[in-house]
Design a protein around this nucleic acid. Structure first.
Lengths: 339, 339
DNA sequence: TTGTAAGCGTTATCAA
DNA sequence: TTGATAACGCTTACAA
């Protein structure tokens, strides 16, 4: 399992016991910081461990304890997500920090093909981890189904409409979208369009719902352009399309900051002035928002907290304490110069 | 180790053997696709497996085979890297793809604190993985030292000056930097400055060396601003500083695209026209390059290939075949509008 | 407080 | 081609 040593086999508890002149049982007790061990024995073991260069074999330990102290974080579609968009980095940081505090190792698994998906299911089934956190799942995601079926402690960040019964944590995308679109309307805009993305996820769907709810009677289906990804490219293409459909448009709600950035660049090249001619708003408050010119008005997600609480949900299941299976965190509006 | 089943314990080879009415040895052979198994036995096992819902226990298997079929990819400093910069996404994609093809699971480990660092060393020592790929190591990195010491098959992307004897793969940062700076000089610039970053890594050091080499006698130490991170913020601060030091500057080499992007924005706000007043060049050809206005001239790194070959280096060590321990890949210049 | 010994679920050797 | 059986390295009753 571990890297083959250059020469000789690696030390076991057996060697430590022999070196220290005591039994393996006591060595194990020292290693696990258990009570009822004499100071003499403790010292002897510590010295022997150092001397023979002992390191615990995880496989053997996991086999008997039925635990690994590792938690998986599953990321779908590295292309569109890690590269282009979003708070994924902050989610990771929050998760890692909570897990680290509980002395669990975070292992990130990336799914980029059917083959990956199958292998990851094997990995989870095999017992390499005690639990899992699922990011950016789409409707019909086979991993989530497998996790639910194998009854592995888990938590989803976000919550696809058809998700199996797995605890989750998220934000109210619909309400947040509605709120920021209303604010855009309050600036006097009359013809507002939307660059919708990620409609195969709850986030995308709900942001669109919030948009239509805010517009009410003013809603014009013709002013919604759909795209698969939350990407910069989607923003560029979508904005071109929107301008083609209605040159008199004076407001745009982009489904994410990356999308908004693409839209802003198109507007800039076309000589359309933001926010004078068109007000633009985004969603996420990711690192894109402040890079945009002008700075983007957007919805701030508590990404790091989201990641941390997802980790906590998994740890709680592991320790058997009660916990809230459905968590919705509040968002806020970061109002800047783009609208 | 795995998630506790709702009720009853999970099926073992024992159960399968009993159900199929044959020995555990034969069951194991079927499971591992070994030869010398009758079709009758094979079918019986497959049916039994399905019936009792058997899944192999990885810990037990790893214990006896001394293998895990998993490879770690270690990322330092998620903040500055994953969020701000670079080709890390592409490296991941390349690594995952090669490992996936060899039926190995990629597990990404993030290091964000001393505590993380210690835990990761434990994880590696424990035998959870058969090998490791190290990204963005700095000089004096304890993880690399530990990996070298424990003799774990590994590969580094990049190569810190004091790195222990671990195979590596990288690009010639010095030559690439020199080449693009020469090209900038060829556009007639006279006062060229550099926004240097990551000087605690080989990449940062070498890019600076390439810069001074290209300038030769024209090199003015006063025109080099140093910053710790390859970040957008570093580019903004550095550019302000550079303009303060010498308003007549007419060329800038940024140590990365993110840094260049920050510099471009400062110039834009100051009303300095690029490339008319100042020519700006970057490094990486990351997703930043095309988002910049104007599009950034930069050095293209074969990031995905880098990741793939690092994975291959590890796999080669595992299989014991000969391989090249020091790989340097060629780069090319992507010349666009910023210079 | 310590030692003994029985597993944990596989794979792998050796006979049959 | 198959079946016993001995490891693999550790934890954990149970006895002492």
């Amino acid at each position: 399992m571990a890297g083959r040593r250059s020469g000789g086999r690696r030390a076991t508890i057996h060697d430590v016991a022999a070196e220290a002149g005591i039994s393996r049982g006591t060595v194990s007790r020292v290693l696990n910081n258990e009570p009822y061990v004499s100071d003499t024995a403790r010292r002897a073991v510590q010295e022997a461990v150092a001397k023979v260069g002992y390191v615990r074999n995880a496989a053997a330990r996991n086999l008997v304890t039925q635990r690994s102290r590792a938690i998986a974080l599953i990321i779908h579609e590295p292309h569109s997500l890690v590269l282009e968009d979003s708070n994924i980095g902050n989610i990771l940081i929050g998760t890692n920090s909570v897990l680290s505090g509980a002395d669990h190792q975070l292992v990130t698994l990336m799914i980029d093909s059917q083959r990956d998906s199958d292998r990851v299911v094997e990995y989870l089934r095999g017992g390499f981890v005690d639990g899992a956190i699922i990011l950016s799942a789409r409707t019909g995601d086979p991993i989530s189904a497998a996790i639910a079926e194998m009854d592995l402690p888990a938590s989803m960040v976000g919550h696809p409409s058809d998700a199996p019964d797995i605890p989750f944590i998220g934000i109210d995308n619909r309400a947040a979208a509605e709120a920021i679109v209303r604010r855009l309307m309050a600036t006097g805009r009359r013809r507002i369009g939307m660059l919708a993305s990620g409609l195969d996820r709850d986030s995308g769907q709900d942001r669109l719902l919030g948009f239509t709810a805010a517009l009410g009677d003013a809603y014009d289906p013709d002013l919604v352009v759909r795209h698969q990804f939350y990407s910069y490219a989607a923003g560029m293409e979508g904005m071109e399309e929107l301008l083609a459909r209605d040159p008199s448009i004076d407001g745009v709600f982009a489904a994410s900051d990356a999308v908004a950035a693409g839209a802003l660049d198109v507007l800039h090249r076309r000589g359309v002035v933001v926010p004078d001619d068109i007000g633009v708003i985004g969603f996420d408050d990711s690192s894109w928002a402040l890079r945009c010119t002008p700075a983007l008005s957007t919805v701030r997600q508590p990404a790091e907290t989201l990641g941390g609480l997802a980790a906590q949900q998994v740890l709680d299941q592991l320790s058997g304490v009660d916990f809230e299976r459905a968590l919705i965190l509040p968002t806020e509006i970061a109002w800047r110069e783009s609208a």
